[in-house]
Structure formats: structure tokens, C-alpha cells
């Protein structure tokens, strides 16, 4: 069951992170909170797991991080790079293709 869930969720955190950061730069907590609100808590990632994912994307050149003072505290803000934009476009089109295909399959042969 866990494996099946992992398979379904494969690539989703990356897509969500890139999509949200395409809007504006955010720090980790803000990003986790936005995911929870936007997905109405349907997607609940362990929030701690967000950071390895962010660091990995940064090392791949998809994100850039910078320290910024906010509310008297220094936070690490993440934003999308040009390479990240291209990756987001690719992942989005792939996701839509798969979602359309699954929807068609779920609708049954009579709708074909």
C-alpha cells in the first residue's frame, strides 16, 4: 500500500514545489503551509522532507536560495531559475498527459 502511494506520489512534490515557487519566492515553512492549504491537506508531505528536496533542486540548478531578513529573523528564500521554469513546463505537460489518460481510462471504454 505504501509502495503504491509512493508510486502515485512520485514526482508530485517536485512539481508542487516548482509550481508554487514560479509564483513568488518562499521559505520552507511558507511553502509547506501553502501546499497544505492549496491541496486542502489531501497531499500531506512530511514537512521535514521538504528541505532535502529543496536542497536537491537547488544543487540541480532548478532553484536558487538566498538569505533574507523577515520579521527580525533570517530565512532562506527559494526561487525558480530559468532551468527550473523549463523543468516546470516539462513536468506540467507530462502530468497533464498522464492525468488525461487516467481520466479516460477511468471513464471506461464507452466514453472512448
Amino acid at each position: 500500500m505504501t509502495d503504491a502511494k509512493a508510486l502515485l506520489m512520485s514526482g508530485v512534490p517536485e512539481l508542487l514545489i516548482l509550481r508554487l515557487l514560479a509564483e513568488r519566492e518562499m521559505y520552507g515553512y511558507e511553502l509547506a503551509k501553502t501546499v497544505r492549504v492549496l491541496t486542502r491537506e489531501a497531499i500531506s508531505l512530511g514537512e521535514g522532507v521538504l528541505y532535502p528536496a529543496l536542497h536537491s533542486l537547488e544543487l540541480s540548478g532548478l532553484l536558487r536560495a538566498r538569505r533574507r531578513q523577515a520579521g527580525g529573523r533570517t530565512r532562506v528564500y527559494y526561487s525558480l531559475t530559468a532551468k527550473g521554469q523549463r523543468r516546470l513546463a516539462y513536468l506540467t505537460s507530462r502530468w497533464r498527459r498522464i492525468a488525461t489518460a487516467v481520466e479516460a481510462a477511468l471513464a471506461g471504454p464507452s466514453h472512448a
Binding site: 521559505y27 520552507g28 515553512y29 509547506a32 514537512e47 521535514g48 528541505y51 532535502p52 536542497h55 529573523r73 530565512r75 532562506v76
Partner: peptide, 14 residues
Amino acid sequence: RRVIGELEDHFADI
């Protein structure tokens, strides 16, 4: 060090 620092901040925010 970086992950731990960010987790500390995240925990404090929650």
C-alpha cells in the same frame, strides 16, 4: 548543518 538549521526554524514556526 543547513537542513538542521531550517528544520529548527520550521519547528519554531509550527
